[in-house]
Amino acid sequence: MTALLEVNDLVVRYPTGSLFGRLRGEVREVTVLDGVSLTLDQGETLGLVGESGSGKTTLGRAIGGMTPMAAGSITLAGISATGRQDVFWREMRRQVGFMFQDPMAALDPRMRLAASITEPLAVNGIGRTERRRRAGDLLAEVGLSPDFAERFPHQISGGQARRVTVARALSLRPRLVIADEPTAGLDLSVQGELLNLLNAIQAASSVSFLFITHNLAVARHVTDRVAVMYLGRIVESARTADIFARPGHPYTRALLSAHGAPGATPRLTGEIPSLKRRPQGCEFHTRCPLATDRCRSEPPAEHLIGPQHQVRCHFPLAPAGKASPQVPPAHPEPARSQP
């Protein structure tokens, strides 16, 4: 399998501060993503997890070209963003479907659902009759009846709106779907149905998913690999089973314990530091139970502690011989609804 998507040292900065602040020479921009690299294979699901403000959504938006990148490169199916920009983005927009965090906000309140679903087709110059036909097919694909085509967004429920955005993301038959918190705001049974739907779609079309979530249970159910983000960096990435069984980074362990996994280590205290004042050395040292003087001064390099298991920490915990907790069911086994 060759990588479908490759992101190398991606940096995203946002401008910040008032005019007066700038005149006084204060920080002009914050670095939201600081050298993020990841790869994603065809048909694979990669989960991006982390606290709010860790840069998950920004990474998704940067890959979709909605946020300009300051440095780094993105390669999709062999075409790179550093080469011919316009060719790349045209290809990117055809190959990547987006699901936004808030499905209601992502649907134009004055547009009928059929028009919303087929908007990507319209943008790519596909005619009206063809669009009408495809709208019906896409609705059926996400389990909605054809009469939804003529409805408006305020006439459907949150779960149905989510399905509509799935249909829209799939309308161009993309090779990658970036799903930003696809289960947010749904009750558990609807979450389960949606995850089953996404699994079924992947099984049928071998589309890749970049799955942005803070819900570890969801990540465990649907992803093949997980990347943990903290303060705009990926601090650990591994196959899903490995990361839940043998978390290497203290932050990952803290996240898992916060989620109630067995063998709890000290829970996370304090807040994510401000992006404007990134801590020296390892950025997690302000909250890390294991922090030493070395962590406070020297940024850690990436260590390989297992197959495909990378950790950015001076003291990666790799209890290789330790009996691991029961390995969670991995994708592509269909997800059951959560207990």
Binding site: G64, G65, M66, W89, R90, R93, R94, V96, F98, F100, Q101, D102, A105, A106, L107, D108, P109, R110, M111, S116, E119, P120, A122, V123, N124, R168
Partner: peptide, 24 residues
């Protein structure tokens, strides 16, 4: 977000103005 969605599909500004802005 629906305007951002439209941009992510590669819609041009005039297209966004006519299909999303004017009706709203």
């Amino acid at each position: 977000d629906f305007v951002a969605a439209s941009q992510s599909m590669g819609a041009s500004l005039p297209r966004i103005a006519l299909t999303h802005l004017v009706p709203n």
